[in-house]
Design a protein around this nucleic acid. Structure first.
Length: 551
RNA sequence: GACCUCGUAGCUCAGCUGGUAGAGCAUCUGACUUUUAAUCAGGGGGUCGCGGGUUCAAAUCCCGCCGAGGUCACCA
């Protein structure tokens, strides 16, 4: 992009005008335009994301990563060097005990997340437990992040000078804070601007007596010494935070400091941060007025919804939080990335655990197919590529079929493959291997009511309602199954021919066939419909079937 | 109180910088000696939340209103 165009691209805080480089109209192109306009000619572009590991990192937080990831991909596609920085805000305080965690953990409230033990005792800390799961998922998704652990960064002393700087300018910091507080809010909270100015210290101190941030800062010596009172023990001490790194900047300053420290050019955030007067605005003011640096290009994103999660089945202990790892149980990595990146961050969408998943897989498969035929528009093509789809991805097994056929083959890939071949369903072995476990998890963990199970014994109630003619049809089927069934098509033909009668018209024959299928389904699985009968009968245990058909 | 998003076919949604309303599913019809949780072709179905405005032209831009959801003003 030329300088001239870059300047035209806009300086508003929302997505800018389209330019030649974003001719495809894709949201990510517009963001990239904006980044390049705000920060032209950088050696290295830094896109950031960050999460506080205060509990299960849920699927909504993943939008932070997905959005930034798309911008990284776009910048690289334009020949820029870009890195993807991810901050674990694990030096944040433990705020509340989540549902499912031992209530006694309330004694850790106020401590850094890295000082709270793992409730299950498996990980070095509370924070690490959730970080580890998330990092594992990012690996599965093929997203490489440059991780920063804020506890380490703070304790290493890396930020000491910045903390001192903030303290030295605490009057200005107080002023900036006040700028964004409303009179009404001040009244409600009993904040008096004058006292605030005098008592405000822009730091959080983790008491060396209690380990918590329930601390009152008493004085600052202008260098690196700070005196505080631990409110839990009422003890007072002076520390030199250069040697005793227990001091942290509060969020509304911390963020701005890190933008400068890491040279961040783009960072998305949820609307909790982006609301006017919210933490982005405050940090942007700190960045400009105190650190003398532009804030990164922001992008607000809408939250992601979830549907089809049945009550108790979910990890109810964790208050129903859904992590990317859980999503990856049922979504292929490429599909999941595609779902997050295909729409503008401002567009909300739903992830699903119910039959909606069928639609998402189908839509994705069609999209990939059109891409592979070279028919996808540049914008759609780009998103697919960012998601990791390639020209040579093997033919997919429809998810619906993975579920249906998976069940009747006891989830054995080789058997399914054989069945697919015999039934002339085209799909690759690779896709079977990838999707079968997802289909199994989807069905057994989240949609057990969809399971097709052979009855334990004959359906006597249903059989009682059958007349002689229909009983005869069932008997004919049994007889056929006792013999040598050579192929699925042969079985198929027999199934259709059994109810046929020269006396019936075509229409009547169809009705008779439908009735016959219904009878068989009811006898076998107690439902009016099921998987295609020929395939089903071919695959399932013959002796069991014969027992169920013996009425 | 401020701000944000959404409101387009029965359902889920596309519609980028304005130019005669789109897709998938569902439904209906038909084809395949086969109305099966696996095929194919075709059809029907929308006053684009409501009311103004700008324009030769608005689902698309502007203003107002209604409805749904959300965020902040504590902390992060």
């Amino acid at each position: 992009m030329s300088q001239e165009k870059a300047f035209q691209a806009s300086s508003s805080s929302v997505i800018g005008e389209a330019s030649a480089d974003s001719a495809d109209g894709l949201w990510v192109g517009k963001i990239a335009d904006k980044v390049l306009a705000e920060f032209p000619d950088q050696e290295l572009y830094t896109c950031a994301a960050g999460i506080s590991p205060s509990g299960i990192v849920h699927f909504g937080n993943f939008r932070d990563v997905a959005t930034s990831y798309a911008v990284v991909c776009e910048l690289r596609a334009r020949g820029k060097k870009a890195r993807f920085l991810f901050s674990w805000d694990n030096y944040d305080r433990f705020r509340k005990v989540p549902v499912g965690v031992d209530p006694s953990f309330s004694r850790y409230i106020g401590m850094p997340l890295t000082s709270v033990p793992d409730p299950e005792g498996q990980f070095p800390s509370y924070a690490r437990r959730f970080e580890a799961e998330f990092e594992e998922s990012m690996k599965d998704l093929g997203i490489t992040l440059d991780y920063r652990y804020q506890t380490q960064e703070y304790q290493s002393g890396r930020y000491t000078d910045k903390i001192a700087f903030a303290l030295q300018n605490r009057a200005q910091a107080a002023e900036i804070q006040l700028q964004f507080k409303t009179d009404k809010g001040n009244q409600e909270k009993g904040i008096d601007p004058e006292t605030f100015r005098q008592t405000y210290f822009p730091v959080t101190v983790y008491s060396r007596f209690s380990g918590t941030d329930k601390v009152q800062v008493l004085s600052y010596d202008g260098g690196t010494k700070l005196t505080y009172r631990c409110l839990m023990t009422d003890k007072v001490e002076q520390i030199d935070f250069r040697e005793t790194p227990v001091v942290k900047l509060p969020w509304k300053l911390d963020w701005a400091m890190r933008w400068g420290e890491e040279q961040v050019h783009f960072e998305p955030s949820g609307k909790d941060h982006m609301t006017p007067g919210g933490s982005f605005d405050v940090n942007a003011a700190f960045a400009r007025e105190m650190f003398g640096r532009k804030p990164p290009v922001p992008q607000m994103y809408e939250f992601v919804g979830i549907q089809g999660v049945k009550g108790g089945k979910m990890s109810g202990s964790k208050g129903g939080a859904i992590s990317p790892a859980m999503l990856l149980e049922i979504y292929e990595p490429t599909l999941l990335k595609w779902l997050y990146m295909r729409r503008s961050p401002m567009q909300s969408f739903n992830l699903a655990f119910d039959t909606e998943v069928y639609r998402q897989y189908d839509e994705f498969d069609r999209e990939v197919a059109s891409f592979q035929r070279g028919e996808a528009s540049p914008a759609r093509q780009k998103i697919l590529q960012f998601s990791g789809v390639t020209q040579t991805d093997p033919a997919p097994l429809a998810f619906k079929q993975a579920v249906a056929l998976g069940q009747i083959t006891q989830w054995q890939p080789e058997k399914l493959r054989e069945l697919a071949e015999k039934s002339e369903i085209p799909c690759s072995a690779a896709s079977i291997a990838a999707r079968l476990p997802k289909a199994q998890a989807w069905l057994t963990r989240y949609n057990p009511e969809e399971i097709i199970a052979l009855r334990d014994g004959p359906n006597a109630d249903y059989a009682a309602g059958l007349d002689d003619k229909r009983r005869a049809q069932i008997a004919a089927l049994s007889a056929f199954l006792k013999g040598d069934v050579t192929s699925i098509p042969a079985l198929d033909e027999t199934l259709y021919s059994i109810p046929k009668d020269p006396a019936l018209t075509d229409k009547e024959t169809k009705v008779a066939q439908r009735g016959f299928f219904k009878d068989v389904y009811n006898l076998l699985i107690g439902k009016d419909a099921g998987p295609r009968l020929s395939t089903f009968l071919w695959a399932i245990d013959r002796a069991k079937v014969l027992a169920l058909l013996a009425i």
